[in-house]
Design a protein around this nucleic acid. Structure first.
Lengths: 222, 222
DNA sequence: GATTCATTAAAACGTTTGTTTGAATCATAC
DNA sequence: GTATGATTCAAACAAACGTTTTAATGAATC
């Protein structure tokens, strides 16, 4: 019998993960208490420590649950690109789509929780909790390494350091576009449509424009 | 006589603001306790409540102290552009520089605390504390409104909604470039140079490339 | 039906949180 | 020198925090 109305779907473990994912996204790690999580999940307070050990291990599991799959999808897309290319240079736009487009498609999944998770991921990039940073670094290592290598091969005439910077900028534009609640939304009101599927083509166009921009002349902006 | 070594410079109020600015940037609002702030500032615990009332009002003052000046500088730069133009359309790149370049020049001021503040500001955009959001919206309202209007005039042939989106993306790339501690930095190690002045020309080039990118064809990315 | 093991329950643990209190201290004006 | 008003101080406040404990409950095995 259900403990609370609407508790039926899913076991205790995954209900905690779902509630944590949403609350961490809305209030951050420090701003989300165990009691907030367990009451939203409709489970006993002690259940988190029983199933996950500590709050930090719960946070880690919230990320691992989806991040492993995301990066595997990215690598699978890159594998396919490289297999189809068979030695011929790959267009940078295809590589960018394999990395950022895959994330955007995950973010477009509102009902399945992908959107919530991508919001959480975006805000976590600027929330330098040491514990989470270490974990993200390990989860991302292989994926980022392979995509950077692919971009280096696709743009052999461009300085590798510049490519690194632009990957960094693209990362920012994307995570912010998904997670950011910036002054724009506050001033101008909501955008025309909340549906994240409208975001993807616009963002991809912007990212490619930035990637292809002429290199900055040397010297500091003044 | 100094209470702690190195306390000499500045009064209690500004020492609290400086300590709060740095700690909020490093650990977030909820992750920074009153005791962390007062001990770093070398003042008594009760000093924060005496001078600012509550923690939230301290946060508000940390932002107001620098944000008002930043947005005034932006508006002054835009005023000058429009005065020089005297009716002739202004190049979008000049407008972008007046908004984002001004912020980047503030972020380049490491010793004066501008860099710390811009890091804090960047992470705050994705930290949707309701109290801070409301405050940022009010502080930004006039500035964003005027810059959007300027971009609309500079790009009369582009749909205004597209400009709004791209401003949003630029906002993300910049704040993330300053505040973000993303997987890249974790995987690839620090960039060649920590000096933020190297960041500015690279980012400006990326932003303009994104702004000028061809508009996305209609329909969702697939 | 009794035993066993995993899970849930309520209650309490010791810390830390933001804030308040009332006395001590300071500089300044008379 | 004394009075005044602002500031600092040590101490304490109730509330909320993450975690632990011990008993109750559930389902499966013999």
């Amino acid at each position: 019998m259900s403990q609370v109305p609407g508790k039926a779907a899913g076991d205790t473990r995954s209900r905690i993960l779902d509630a944590g994912e949403r609350l961490f996204m809305e209030h951050g790690f420090d701003g989300t208490s165990m009691r907030m999580i367990t009451s939203q999940a409709g489970v006993n307070l002690a259940a988190v420590n029983y199933h996950f050990g500590t709050k930090e291990l719960l946070i880690q599991e919230v990320f691992r649950r989806r991040l492993t799959h995301l990066n595997q999808s990215r690598l699978a897309a890159l594998d396919q690109l490289e297999a189809e290319a068979a030695g011929v240079p790959i267009k940078p736009s295809r590589i960018v789509d394999a990395f950022f487009g895959t994330a955007l498609r995950m973010a477009a999944d509102v009902e399945g929780g992908g959107h919530t998770f991508m919001c959480l991921l975006g805000r976590t990039y600027t929330e330098p909790n040491e514990f989470v940073r270490q974990f993200l670094a390990e989860e991302y290592a292989e994926c980022v390494e392979r995509f950077l290598a692919a971009l280096y091969r696709a743009l052999p005439e461009v300085d590798r350091n510049e490519i690194l910077w632009r990957f960094h900028f693209m990362m920012g534009a994307m995570s912010y576009a998904i997670a950011g609640t910036d002054a724009l939304q506050l001033v101008t009101g909501k955008f025309d449509d909340e549906n994240p599927s409208r975001l993807a083509p616009r963002l991809m166009s912007f990212l490619l424009g930035g990637l292809r921009a002429p290199l900055a002349e040397f010297g500091a902006l003044k």
